[in-house]
Design a protein around this nucleic acid. Structure first.
Lengths: 230, 230
DNA sequence: ATTATTTATTGATTTAAATCATCACTCTGA
DNA sequence: TCAGAGTGATGATTTAAATCAATAAATAAT
């Protein structure tokens, strides 16, 4: 299950900007407690409500983060892709996970004890600064999503989802995705059936085209209009 | 309009834990650029989309934070009460406000340049730590609210709102509130009419009683059950 | 005191979206 | 090669909640 990545933390350093400001010594502190993990598609990385001991940094694959409701509804609040770490707000508050992380594809990750990173925050001001920047960005994402999900109706929400996937997650158009219709629904705050139906209207209106795992946005300006009008 | 509070930052220090770890010198740096403001009920402190120059610390009164949608819908994402500062995620990202802050009652506040606080984060590790703790808490609040608003129906959402107001904002039961029905609706992600209707059913079922500006929760366990069942 | 204006309340109607039910299709493993 | 599971697709029905409409109460303004 465990597979050590080539190059260790110095390798990651080149990619995740948050580690840019760490000294060799600090990086080796991270390295020394680092645990390398591999998750298969569908496996849980951590579960909402469980105690959090580690920060998780994704080195390959893709992870979805979702809130589990009382009934078995889910709301996907974001994705984490290489090389980035999963923000764990509970690490500083109640030592609990507030959402569940699941691998969408086969995924490799490095685990680092929360205490080690928290000490780096205290000893390295630049690191602290990057850290706050990351948290702030995630807070803004949450605000954006809460606005979309609560104030728009189904077509607007799905338009938001498609634009988000293309511009923020896959950074391409068309993009190939491993997400199911249920995932698209969970990301847009609707049922699977509603997701399928609205995607069909988008296809009929030639706003998008779907070929198997590939989604192409054909008319982004119109999708943006639909997003704006809710 | 401006009214200097007695005692300056040393006074605030005693109340807002985030300033606990600042030295006299650091506090005087804050003091030197501090601007004291007063807002009347209903006045805007800052508006979504506007550039952010200052951190705002509330010294008296009450401020609501809300997201403005495309139509003129609002979603209240939280309140800030004395003595606490308003978290401004854009300060570290795009220098824009991502929600609007409005005084619910007559409110006094201290404004401090974002740069000054950001420098403190860089030079004072303990301050950085408190800062991250605050941001994390707010992120958790957002997650809690997004879960409530997207996965529960009207009675569950209103139950959440009432419990939130009693336990987190007013810290009492009964509590006296200056919030309108529209505010309660904006906080629960529903229309004013729906808010009125569900409050009426709560009154009829003797879960709550409303006397003018005062709301009393009579049956908190039942409200919690309603919250849990959505 | 009286009008005007906002806020609260209630009922009737419409509508968006969930739910329910069924069927097709793909993929997996026996 | 075929059962069985999971996913995708559609139609019919129900339901929650918004909208629309009208009135009442409370607050502010003259």
């Amino acid at each position: 299950m465990n597979k050590l990545p080539i190059g260790g933390c110095l390798h990651c350093k080149a990619k995740s900007d948050i580690f840019d400001h760490l000294s060799e010594e600090e990086l080796s502190r991270v390295e020394s407690c680092r645990v390398s993990m591999h998750y298969r598609a569908g496996e849980i990385v951590f579960k909402q409500g469980s105690p959090c001991y580690d920060f998780v940094c994704i080195t390959s694959g893709l992870v979805k983060l979702y809130i589990e409701g009382e009934n078995d509804r889910r709301l996907i609040i974001g994705f984490v892709k290489p090389v980035d770490y999963i923000f764990v707000p509970g690490a500083y508050v109640d030592k609990r996970h507030h959402y569940t992380a699941v691998a969408c594809e086969d995924t490799s990750a490095c685990l680092v004890e929360t205490e080690v990173l928290q000490n780096l925050v205290k000893t390295n001001p630049e690191f602290a600064n990057s850290f706050i920047k990351k948290i702030s960005s995630q807070a803004i994402s949450l605000i954006t999503q809460i606005a979309s999900v609560t104030q728009k109706q189904i077509p607007g929400r799905m338009a938001d989802t498609l634009i988000y996937l293309s511009t923020k997650v896959y950074n391409s158009n068309p993009f190939i995705t491993s997400l199911s219709r249920q995932d698209l629904a969970d990301l847009s705050g609707m049922t699977k059936e509603s997701a399928i139906r609205v995607l069909k209207t988008f296809k009929d209106d030639e706003l998008i085209v779907i070929r198997g795992d590939e989604i192409e946005l054909l008319n982004i300006p119109m999708l943006e209009t639909i997003s704006r009008n809710g």
